[in-house]
Nucleic acid binder design. Structure first.
Length: 229
DNA sequence: GGGGTCAATATGCCCG
DNA sequence: CGGGCATATTGACCCC
């Protein structure tokens, strides 16, 4: 479901400051900035290798790296044979070990972005490249945001359902009230006037209808403040 | 085999 | 202008 669907119910949701733009990953294209504005600024520290190249610089280690803590090998190293021949072209799938993932998660809980020192330390601790840690955090933030978007969507959907029900209920109530009230009560209030002296309702300004039924006892000071009967 | 997950890559924007 | 970031996409891998 997308946000448009939500809005097509004919209801207008008043949900405080909720901004639909934070919802629509539909057209996220350029600006991820609404997120970043709130994120902590981080210093930059460049590693000697170029940005895009460090993966190549370190590519070999995808097979070699293991996380020391529990001497965990890579999680699903079923295909250990291929890993020997770590060709230059292959983009093998590194699977982080449970211990690595746990530590990354732990760290993410504390701060969803890393400054260069944190990145370095974490990378060292995990026996990963800083770039890998960085990528992991990027992906992790993306996952978090996606999940949050889904939750927001669910929430709005619920709101929409609730309001639709409420709207239906109120319509029904109004219908019932209309049926149970005297006829003049069914006139729009603004068309009714009440004589200040006798306190009886006069009809609307040029009402033909009011003649036919009991004089209503409403007074509209704006239409006829000093009018007498 | 196809769908899901996730690390890695590509791209574009923003900010210092 | 370079680095960091968000976002989209790719591709390896797993599981049913």
């Amino acid at each position: 479901m997308d946000f448009e669907d939500l809005c097509n119910t004919g209801l207008v949701l008043g949900l405080g400051n909720y901004s639909p733009s934070s919802l629509t990953s539909k057209n996220p294209t350029k600006n991820g900035d609404h997120i970043r504005k709130t994120a902590e600024p981080s210093l930059t520290l460049s590693l000697s290798g170029a940005k895009k190249d460090d993966s190549d610089l370190y590519r070999q280690d995808s097979a070699a790296s293991s996380f020391p803590t529990v001497s965990v090998k890579r999680e699903r190293e079923v295909r250990s044979e291929d890993e020997e021949e770590d060709g230059p072209n292959d983009r093998k799938k590194l699977r982080l070990s449970k211990a690595q993932a746990a530590l990354l998660e732990e760290s993410f809980k504390q701060h969803s972005t890393l400054n260069p020192k944190q990145k370095q330390d974490l990378a060292r601790e995990l026996k990963l490249r800083p770039r890998q840690v960085e990528v992991w955090f990027q992906n992790r933030r993306a996952r978090t945001k996606l999940k949050q978007t889904e939750l927001d969507c669910e929430f709005l959907k619920k709101c929409c359902e609730t309001l639709t029900d409420e709207n239906r209920r109120l319509h029904k109530e109004l219908q019932e009230l209309k049926l149970s009230q005297p006829l003049y009560m069914q006139l729009p209030a603004a068309t009714l006037t009440m004589c200040p002296s006798c306190e009886r309702i006069g009809g609307a300004v040029a009402d033909n209808t009011a003649k036919t039924f009991i004089k209503p006892h409403f007074y509209n000071p704006f239409t006829n403040p000093s009018a007498a009967c």
